[in-house]
Amino acid sequence: MSSEKIVAEVRTEFGKGAARRIRRADKVPAVVYTHGEQPRHLTLPGHDTMMALKHGGANALVELDIEGELQLALTKQVQVDPIKRFLEHVDFIAVKRGEKVTVDVPVHLNGEAAKETLVVTENATVSLEAEATHIPEWIEVSIEGAEAGTLIYASDLVLPKGSELLTDPETLIVNVTQQQSEEALEADLESAEDEAGIEREESDEAAAEGDDAGE
């Protein structure tokens, strides 16, 4: 994973009012956490930061230029406005080249399973240990032609060189089952409703058919 360079400013103002002023200037408040040191509060350019996170994925690696000092940092938490979708705040962890880090990496399915099957992703991420500069954006899993009954476990995943699986190897990642017909789904629903004592209201069509039959 390559890092993208972002020019950062040291932040001296804090609180909600200061954060609002930073965002109005199309910038993003951020914090870099370093083991054994005080957190560094920064202001980042909004567009550059958004693009870096978009390109790097969930574990984006950036190179922060903090007043001429370069610091590699791994994205740990991103807060996004739920409506306007702008960045509200970003937390980073300072890392070094060659340093091993623990990350959660998304699983991407590739291909199409056999006809009349249902593909269920039981776990959408796996935990890995990898070098900070070689974190995979995702782990690809092929389900091309997979038949009903196919089970893919964490131990089946092909990891990039240098990555070590931390998730339990027996964790189920993908479950390919037989797709149920509409008739079978309807029967299961009716059975569940009967057990729960739920009575269905008769539809207008069914009522009309009943009236016609009685004439």
Score class of each variant (00 low, 15 high):
residue 66 I to C: 01
residue 47 H to W: 15
residue 155 S to M: 12
residue 162 G to T: 03
residue 160 P to T: 05
residue 184 A to S: 12
residue 152 I to M: 00
residue 4 E to P: 01
residue 36 G to T: 08
residue 5 K to N: 11
residue 104 D to W: 12
residue 99 E to Y: 01
residue 32 V to Y: 00
residue 184 A to P: 00
residue 202 E to I: 15
residue 184 A to R: 02
residue 181 S to P: 01
residue 57 G to V: 03
residue 149 G to V: 02
residue 143 I to C: 01
residue 206 A to I: 00
residue 4 E to H: 10
residue 127 S to I: 14
residue 28 V to E: 09
residue 79 Q to V: 01
residue 84 K to H: 15
residue 41 H to P: 07
residue 156 D to I: 09
residue 205 E to F: 08
residue 39 P to Q: 08
residue 209 E to F: 08
residue 1 M to F: 06
residue 136 P to E: 03
residue 142 S to F: 03
residue 193 E to I: 12
residue 162 G to R: 04
residue 134 H to M: 06
residue 47 H to T: 14
residue 145 G to V: 11
residue 70 L to I: 11
residue 104 D to I: 00
residue 7 V to A: 15
residue 134 H to K: 12
residue 36 G to I: 00
residue 66 I to A: 05
residue 72 L to C: 11
residue 155 S to D: 05
residue 121 T to E: 06
residue 157 L to H: 04
residue 77 Q to K: 04
residue 201 E to S: 08
residue 46 G to N: 08
residue 18 A to D: 09
residue 167 T to S: 12
residue 107 V to Y: 00
residue 119 V to A: 07
residue 88 E to M: 07
residue 196 A to C: 04
residue 42 L to R: 08
residue 177 T to P: 03
residue 53 L to F: 07
residue 81 D to H: 04
residue 99 E to H: 04
residue 200 R to Q: 02
residue 122 E to H: 10
residue 97 R to W: 09
residue 121 T to C: 10
residue 26 D to T: 10
residue 13 E to V: 04
residue 132 A to D: 00
residue 13 E to R: 06
residue 26 D to H: 10
residue 150 T to F: 10
residue 128 L to V: 01
residue 14 F to S: 03
